[in-house]
């Protein structure tokens, strides 16, 4: 099993969600995140005082999948999230040792 984590632009979330659903993904976890990469931040001015805002809002999408599906899921996310502009985010895949469904106590692939 693999965990696919994507940090994307917040305004791409709806498209990413729809694309994942279309690809047969039945569940995901979405959380608000903030951070920066090459994009860095921007400047805001309040009553003449300038603030450099480094951490910009992002959305983190996490999907648990069978190992063989992971790279396809990552591709689906990338396609849906891509705008081609700096700040589009990143997707990464890590191996997962075990998964347990809380309701039933099932382990492994059956819990996905």
């Amino acid at each position: 099993m693999k965990l696919v984590t994507a940090v994307i632009q917040p305004h791409r979330l709806d498209d990413v969600k729809a694309a994942l659903e279309a690809a047969g993904i039945r569940g995901m976890t979405v959380s608000e995140a903030s951070g920066y990469g090459r994009q860095r931040g921007h400047t805001e001015v309040y009553r003449g005082a300038e603030y450099t805002v480094d951490l910009v809002p992002k959305v983190r999408v996490e999907v648990l999948v069978e190992s063989e599906a992971a790279s396809t899921v990552a591709d689906v996310v990338v396609q849906a999230a891509q705008t081609g502009k700096i700040g589009d985010g990143k997707v990464w895949i890590v191996p997962v040792e075990d998964v347990v469904r809380v309701r039933t106590g099932e382990h492994g692939a059956g819990a996905l």
Binding site: E32, S34, G41, T43, E44, A49, E50, Y51, T52, V53, D54, L55, V56, P57
Partner: peptide
């Protein structure tokens, strides 16, 4: 949430 955190003031 931390939201957008300004880290420097000019």
């Amino acid at each position: 949430s931390a939201g957008r955190i300004a880290t420097e003031v000019k």
